[in-house]
Amino acid sequence: MAAPRYPIAPHVLDMLSERSRACIDRLRGHEPETADLELHPVSKLAAVLVLLYERAGALRVLLTTRSKTLRSHPGQTALPGGKVDDTDADAWETAMREANEEVGLPLDSPHVHRVGMLRPFVSAAKLLVTPVVALLDDVSVLDGLVASPGEVDHIFEHPLEAMVDPALSLAEPLEPVGSEHWPYEVELHNWTDIRISWLNDTLYRMHRFRSTASPVKGLTADILISAAQIAYAREPLFERYAPEQLTRYSLIQPWLETKAEDLQYVLSSATSSASSPAVSIEA
């Protein structure tokens, strides 16, 4: 079944550069791997908003730095989003509601257009996270965003293509090497291979990207790498996966541990070398 083409008015697409329009068209036509979300309790479902917009002919993505007072992932980079509420109709409504609460993005804004979805990702908290991709046609909307006290410390942006070609971020006013927000010697990008006990001891490659604020890493990095790969139809200029990560683990399947009441998630064997793992770890 072909991916749904959400309606975007021609004049909105005509505002984009030819290259950015091609990126949006690829994202609109993308057919993600799916999971039966009805098999999972609402308490284990979440959604995030990948809000794209164009500056100087290139697509950028809206990001936040989580408040340092939060118990979960304090001070880390995140896409606007959160857990599904019982009253949410779908992942789009969850992502937009959370974006409104976290950064004040207007609900039902005529300048925000639904583009599509990516496959679900599994977070370190064992949440099944669905990324929703949207296009903002008026960047002046960003001027009215306000970080929610206690939830968001900072709102910033990053070039989407830099998630597959980190050198493209050199044009940004990046955090200094060795600083609080980039305490590494490498200039733009590094990774650590982590063995995950609750996923059959599989290896997972946790990427980190230098930015103008907090590092883009873990779940957020994995979602944006995938979005950039689809949008720009190109592979990353770095080794995306840890050994065994690509060939052994791909599709999400629910699994109920016999010794635990909580629903766990494991990944089945990959069906092809083109499949991509769905687990992501924040660290």
Rank of each mutant, 00 (worst) to 15 (best):
V48G: 02
L49H: 02
V50A: 14
V50H: 00
L52D: 03
Y53H: 07
R55T: 13
A56Q: 10
A58C: 14
L59T: 08
L62H: 08
T64Y: 07
S67F: 08
S67E: 05
T69G: 09
H73W: 09
H73V: 11
H73S: 12
Q76D: 05
T77V: 15
L79F: 07
L79C: 08
P80K: 11
G81L: 08
G82M: 06
V84E: 02
D85R: 06
D85Y: 04
T87K: 02
D88Y: 09
D88H: 09
A89Q: 05
D90P: 02
T94H: 02
T94W: 07
M96S: 09
M96E: 08
R97V: 12
R97T: 12
A99K: 01
N100W: 13
E102S: 13
E102N: 05
E102W: 04
L107E: 05
L107S: 05
S109W: 08
V115C: 06
V115P: 00
L118I: 06
R119L: 15
P120C: 12
P120L: 09
P120A: 13
F121V: 06
V122N: 03
S123G: 03
A124S: 04
K126P: 02
L128H: 01
V129G: 05
P131C: 13
V132H: 03
V132E: 01
L135Q: 05
L135H: 05
S140H: 07
D143V: 10
G144L: 10
G144C: 13
G144M: 15
L145V: 09
A147N: 01
S148Q: 06
S148F: 11
